Amino acid sequence: MEQFLKGVGFRTNRPVFEPGEEIEVYVTGYEGDAAVARVGDTVLRIPDAPRDALDKRVRLRVEEFDDNDHDGQASLLEVVGDQTF
């Protein structure tokens, strides 16, 4: 059974990110002037994202992250795609 389950893990709805980490996510909304990407219950704010970034896949660099609140700030590196799903 151990060989069968090797490499199997569970995803969390509250992922943790490290400053400097680069990830690809979808922009899911805006809070004021900042775009927001939600990964499960984790929220990343992207203040430098353009207003038309909603529903686009973007590559980000995490700048700050609070493990307790699952909340952080990221910088936009590039728009990867313009279609969701």
Rank of each mutant, 00 (worst) to 15 (best):
V62A: 10
A35C: 07
D82H: 11
Q73W: 12
A53K: 12
E18W: 07
E18D: 06
G40S: 09
A37F: 06
Y26F: 15
R51P: 14
V36G: 01
F65D: 07
L76N: 04
E21Y: 05
G32W: 01
L76S: 06
G20I: 13
E63W: 00
V16A: 00
V80E: 09
D41K: 14
R14I: 00
L77I: 15
G72P: 12
P50V: 03
D82C: 04
G40V: 00
E18V: 10
D52W: 05
R38V: 00
F17W: 08
P47M: 10
Q73A: 07
V43M: 09
H70V: 01
D48V: 10
E31K: 04
E18G: 00
V43T: 15
E31N: 03
E78P: 00
Q83T: 14
R38Y: 02
P50E: 11
V16G: 00
E18P: 02
D71M: 14
D66A: 04
A53M: 04
Y26C: 07
P19C: 01
E31V: 13
Q83W: 09
E31T: 01
V62S: 11
E24C: 04
V79S: 06
D48M: 09
L77Y: 12
L77T: 12
R38L: 04
H70M: 01
T28E: 05
S75L: 10
V43H: 01
E24K: 13
G20D: 08
D52K: 05
R51L: 14
N68I: 13
D52E: 13
D69K: 15
E22T: 02
E78N: 02
G32D: 00
R57W: 04
D41C: 02
P50Y: 09
V16D: 01
S75D: 14
I23L: 12
